[in-house]
């Protein structure tokens, strides 16, 4: 008896679509792309802060994942696996960019914590009295003002829930550097969010 397996693509779970994609089914893969593309793009954007770069890197991540799909064994969710590929490609992209530009004295100061070290401790809770949507917009705005090293460490720690050791491995630096960058990033975020709040009180 000839058995034909039909897939209802929009309702099929990820693992079914992944298994079909591993056999070369591009329709199943297209469904995976449609399902997770916003999340993957958002992760690339959170690190790169540029629409065009984030679109390109996220598309590159999908192509890479297609080529390596046979390696995906289901140890994590497909979305998590895809996010890891996107993070690695975003980091590569940032490193290339960094090599191309000369760091200004200002950037070096930030790396060394020249400004944040002397910032006053912020005595208010940044999420107090804010709608969640508004808080998210403010956090995003503040993230955009951090250097890429500080932003990346914050994204990997707070959004991806990675431990210091895993972040150090990804960013090719020591755990001490991760701790220091995370500290500066948090202090600067606190100051930036406090500044946004103060501006609001003035209005």
């Amino acid at each position: 008896m000839n058995k034909t397996l039909t897939i209802d693509y929009p309702t099929a779970p990820d693992d079914v679509l992944v298994a079909a994609s591993q056999k070369g089914n591009t329709v199943a893969f297209e469904e995976l792309v449609a399902r997770h593309r916003d999340k993957i793009y958002a992760r690339a954007f959170s690190m790169l802060r540029n629409e065009e770069d984030a679109t390109d890197v996220s598309q590159e991540a999908w192509v890479k994942s297609w080529q390596r799909l046979v390696q995906f064994q289901g140890d994590s969710s497909f979305a998590t696996w895809m996010t890891r590929i996107t993070i690695n490609l975003s980091l590569d992209h940032l490193r290339k960019q960094k090599r191309m530009r000369t760091d200004s004295i200002e950037q070096l100061n930030e790396e060394m914590g020249g400004v944040e070290r002397q910032m006053p401790v912020v005595n208010f809770n940044p999420s107090e009295g804010l709608e969640r949507g508004e808080l998210r917009v403010r956090i995003d705005k503040a993230l955009g003002q951090l250097s890429f090293e500080h932003r990346t460490v914050l994204v990997l720690h707070e959004f991806e829930d990675l431990e210091y050791k895993a972040i150090a491995k990804k960013m090719q630096c020591s755990i001490g550097t991760v701790m220091s960058r995370l500290f500066y990033a948090r202090r600067k975020m606190a100051a930036l969010l406090a500044g946004l709040k103060r501006e609001e009180f003035k209005k």
Partner: peptide, 21 residues
């Protein structure tokens, strides 16, 4: 307290974005 407050404000509050295409 400052570090705790900023951490709790950020975690789970990533802005939602959509592919601009």
């Amino acid at each position: 307290h400052e570090l705790r407050d900023i951490k709790s404000a950020i975690v789970g509050n990533e802005v939602s974005l959509a592919v601009p295409e």
